[in-house]
Simulated assay, not measured.
Amino acid sequence: MADSLLLIIAAGAAYLGFALFALSQSRHWQQVAPSHVAQPPQKKALRLLGSLALALSLSCAWLRDGAAFGSVLWLLLLSVAAPLLVFTLSWRPHWLQRLAQRLATPHPRHSRSIKRGPLHRG
């Protein structure tokens, strides 16, 4: 059971990593969420999160099957996740819309930290 769960997490993290890398590009961002504009700091954060997701995928593959076969499994997962993301962006980009909206919406805690002038209270 744990092996199956690690495999599912590794596959999902690989797909998520590629999705985050794709959303860090303006063309794909506009394709998925045309109402929001991704700023350069947000693009860097998307790339960092994509790298972390791929690292999570690799570590799950290593935990499941060791470093030798886990690396081969990870490469296999990458070779499946990348075309799946391409198909998603080609035929159903709206499937990634919720992810993009979630990433575009500022966290409520961060929106309160904006300094306001004396005329803007609240």
Rank of each mutant, 00 (worst) to 15 (best):
H120I: 15
P118Q: 11
L58F: 11
L16G: 01
L77I: 00
A38N: 02
V80H: 04
L96P: 03
L96T: 03
L5Y: 10
W62I: 10
A68W: 14
A2F: 09
K43Q: 15
A13I: 06
L85Y: 01
G122C: 03
A22E: 04
R92I: 08
Q42W: 08
M1K: 13
Q42L: 14
W29T: 04
I8H: 09
R109P: 01
K43Y: 01
G66Q: 03
S90A: 14
P41S: 02
L6W: 09
L54T: 02
G117D: 15
A22D: 02
P41Q: 03
A10N: 03
H36A: 15
V86S: 13
R112A: 10
F18N: 10
A82M: 11
L20A: 06
K115A: 14
C60E: 00
A19D: 01
L58R: 07
L63A: 12
S79K: 04
W29R: 09
A55V: 04
R92Q: 13
H120S: 15
S24D: 06
L20M: 11
L84H: 08
A13W: 01
G17I: 01
I8W: 06
I9H: 13
W91P: 05
V37E: 14
P41W: 04
P83C: 04
A82T: 10
W95I: 05
S113H: 12
S35F: 11
A61L: 05
L5W: 11
A10F: 05
L96Y: 04
L103C: 07
L84T: 02
L85D: 00
Q25D: 13
L46R: 05
L119V: 11
L73P: 00
L16K: 12
H94N: 14
P83R: 08
L16V: 02
F21D: 10
L73I: 09
F18M: 07
L77P: 00
A104D: 03
S26C: 07
K44E: 14
G12M: 03
S111Q: 15
L85H: 01
L46I: 04
L52C: 09
L103D: 03
L49A: 15
A45L: 15
L49D: 07
F18P: 02
L76W: 07
H107G: 05
W91A: 11
R27T: 13
S111E: 15
L52W: 10
P106R: 10
T88M: 06
L6F: 03
A82I: 10
S113Q: 15
P108C: 02
V86W: 14
K43S: 08
R64Y: 07
A68D: 09
I8M: 12
L75T: 06
A53T: 06
K43E: 12
L76P: 00
L48W: 11
G122E: 06
A45D: 07
R121E: 09
P40W: 09
K43H: 08
P93C: 08
D3W: 08
V37T: 15
F18S: 01
P108R: 04
R116Y: 02
A55E: 02
D65Y: 09
P106K: 06
L78D: 08
T88W: 05
L6V: 02
L78Q: 11
A100C: 10
P108M: 01
